[in-house]
Amino acid sequence: MSTMPGKNQTASLEINPIKAEIDEVKRRRILEEAVRQFFEKGYEATSLESIAEGLGVTKQFIYSRFRSKAELLVHVCKAGATAADETVAFSATLAGEPATRLAQIIRYFVRLQIEHRREVALYFREAKSLPAEEAVTIDASKQHFHRMLRALLKEGSLSGQFEIADPSLAASALGGMASWAFTWFTPEGRWDAESVAQELARLALRTVGVRDPEAYVIDSTA
C-alpha cells in the first residue's frame, strides 16, 4: 500500500513552512518596533497601542503573537542577555593557553554586545520591569558568564600567565569593561565593531598582566 502523500497533503507540507516563516517575520517586526520605542521612549511610556500604530497594524495583530507588553520586554531582554550564554558556549569550543582563550572570549563577547547594543541597553535599563521569575532566569546568564570567566582567570593565574590577586574581582572588572561597550559605541564613529573588540581584548590581557598582548590577539575571524 502506497504511503506517498496526496496532492493536498503535499501542498499543505509546502505551505506550512512558508506560513511559519511569514509568521516569524511578523514577530521580528513587532519586536523591532518594541525595541525602538522602548529605547526611545522608555518601557513605561510605551504602549501596545503605540507599537501597533508604529507598525500600521491593529493591537490584535500583536496579541495574536504576544500576550502582553511585559512579554515583549522579556523577549527583548533575553536578546540582550543572549551574548552571555553564547559566549559561554563559545568558550567551551576553545583550546590553547589561557591568554589566547581570554582574547578570543573578550572579542567574541564584545562583538555580540555591539551587535545587540539596544537590547543590551534595554536589559540594563528596564530589568526592574521584568516579571520576577523571568528576571531570575535572565540574571542566571550573567552568573554563568562570570563563573566561566573566573575559572579561566584562575587557570591563568595558577599557571603564572596572569598576574591577578582575585580571579572573581578580575572577572567582574573585565566583564564590566566588555559589557559596557554598548554605552559608547556608535556605528558612525571612527572605530568599527571588530576594531573595538580587538582593542578591548588587548586591554583585557594587559589588565591581567600579559606583557605582549599582540602575541595572543590573533586572527580577526576567531
Score class of each variant (00 low, 15 high):
3 T>L: 15
8 N>F: 11
9 Q>W: 01
10 T>Q: 14
11 A>D: 10
15 I>V: 12
29 R>N: 08
29 R>T: 03
29 R>C: 05
30 I>L: 03
31 L>K: 11
33 E>W: 00
34 A>W: 04
37 Q>Y: 01
39 F>G: 05
39 F>D: 14
41 K>R: 12
43 Y>D: 01
47 S>I: 01
49 E>H: 10
53 E>M: 05
53 E>I: 02
55 L>E: 06
61 F>D: 06
62 I>V: 12
68 S>H: 04
68 S>F: 03
78 K>W: 05
79 A>V: 00
82 T>K: 14
86 E>T: 00
89 A>L: 05
89 A>I: 02
91 S>Y: 02
95 A>Q: 08
97 E>M: 09
101 R>K: 15
102 L>M: 09
107 R>F: 04
113 Q>A: 11
113 Q>R: 14
116 H>D: 05
116 H>W: 11
116 H>A: 14
123 Y>F: 15
124 F>K: 04
137 T>W: 01
137 T>C: 06
141 S>V: 01
144 H>K: 14
146 H>G: 04
147 R>M: 10
148 M>E: 15
150 R>K: 14
156 G>M: 03
156 G>S: 08
156 G>E: 14
157 S>I: 00
158 L>H: 07
160 G>L: 03
164 I>C: 07
172 S>H: 09
172 S>V: 06
173 A>G: 05
175 G>E: 07
177 M>V: 11
178 A>Y: 05
179 S>N: 07
180 W>F: 14
181 A>C: 08
183 T>V: 07
187 P>F: 03
189 G>N: 08
190 R>C: 06
190 R>L: 08
194 E>S: 09
197 A>K: 10
202 R>N: 12
212 D>L: 13
216 Y>V: 12
221 T>G: 11
221 T>S: 13
221 T>K: 08
